[in-house]
Design a protein around this nucleic acid. Structure first.
Length: 311
DNA sequence: CTCCAGGTCGTTG
DNA sequence: CAACGACATGGA
């Protein structure tokens, strides 16, 4: 991959295993805006463009096959932040090979979304975002993340010069009362967010410690926060702490795994254990390919199965 | 109107 | 420890 840095943008050429739409829309990240006003160029196969907010900044990304242009940054900042954010130093073709070696039946899922990458997101933002995610749909999670950002996140600008708010830091979020949080439509999760802020501020939950601890102990530490259970903890481990062996099991993964491996109702703990043994250090990657594919195809969704059986 | 959503908590058996 | 309702909110 070649990197061309200009004053206000960076061009990546020869990018492999990278599809910005798949990366952002696969459910790991909630802080981006799909730019529907962008007019696709039929001849160049440019599909969409995105504003992505992370690490207090806003960038704009356009992809044209293996050329990715990131506006609102420069080469130094790219190497400092975005290279790691997009997990660019990881060889995804090797990962796909390893997963297929564990089970060749994942080929369909991988081929459906071959450009997925697991982002390295900010720890605090990921923690709060996945606390919000419980019992909500993705568009609503994104809306609440926006509400909170606009309420107390620092102002920054998009590549167009439009004002936008970054996700708040711990200190910024702690200026909000429970009532303020409820006004952001966090609902019953408001006290959970308060507890997460308090425990991170106290150091009872420490990013530095979490990065050192064995994964099981790190998960336990995260679960000391009220509103953080097994699934949310695994999402934080996978999406912000680089623990690719974590395998979050939600309603979708439950359906998908029951459909693929168990053929009957199976509890989440058993599914997680099975997947971790099967995919090992690549469990998190496997989860993401399966999740996105299964969700788009509504695998195991009772309502869809009924519809299909009526045809 | 009813049901459900990238769940988790608190309470019961 | 498994089962189950509650929890805010909005869309189907």
């Amino acid at each position: 991959m070649n990197i061309y840095g200009k004053k206000n943008y960076v061009v990546l050429e020869g990018v492999r295993d990278f599809n910005i739409e798949e990366i952002l829309e696969c459910g790991q990240c909630f802080n981006f805006i799909r730019c529907e006003d962008y007019k696709p160029d039929e001849t160049k196969k440019i599909s969409v463009s995105y504003d992505v907010m992370a690490y207090g900044r806003a960038i704009h990304i356009i992809q044209d096959d293996d050329i990715v242009t990131i506006y609102g940054t420069d080469e130094d900042e790219y190497r400092l932040i975005w290279n790691r954010y997009f997990d660019m130093d990881t060889d995804y073709s090797a990962i796909k090979t390893a997963i297929l070696k564990s089970d060749s039946r994942l080929e369909e899922s991988i081929n459906a979304k071959p450009g997925i990458r697991i982002l390295n997101q900010d720890f605090f933002e990921t923690l709060i975002s996945f606390i919000i995610s419980q019992n909500k749909q993705i568009p609503q999670i994104k809306q609440v993340v926006r509400n909170i950002s606009e309420k107390c996140g620092a102002k920054t600008v998009t590549y167009k010069g439009e004002e936008i708010h970054a996700f708040p830091t711990l200190e910024e979020l702690m200026t909000l009362s429970e009532e303020d949080l409820r006004a952001c439509k966090t609902g019953f999760r408001a006290p959970y967010i308060m507890d997460a802020c308090r425990k991170v501020a106290d150091g009872e939950v420490s990013e530095e410690e979490l990065r050192k601890l064995p994964v099981d102990e790190a998960r336990k530490m995260l679960m000391k926060i009220k509103g953080v259970g097994e699934k949310v903890a695994n999402c934080v481990l996978l999406f912000s702490l680089g623990r690719r062996e974590a395998f979050p099991v939600d309603v979708w993964m439950k359906r998908i795994m029951e459909n693929m491996y168990f053929g009957q109702d199976t509890n989440k703990a058993e599914i997680e254990k099975f997947a971790c043994e099967k995919f090992g250090e690549y469990a998190g990657y496997a989860q993401q390919y399966l999740f996105f594919y299964g969700r788009e195809n509504k695998v195991g969704d009772a309502r869809v199965n009924i519809k299909n059986s009526l045809k």
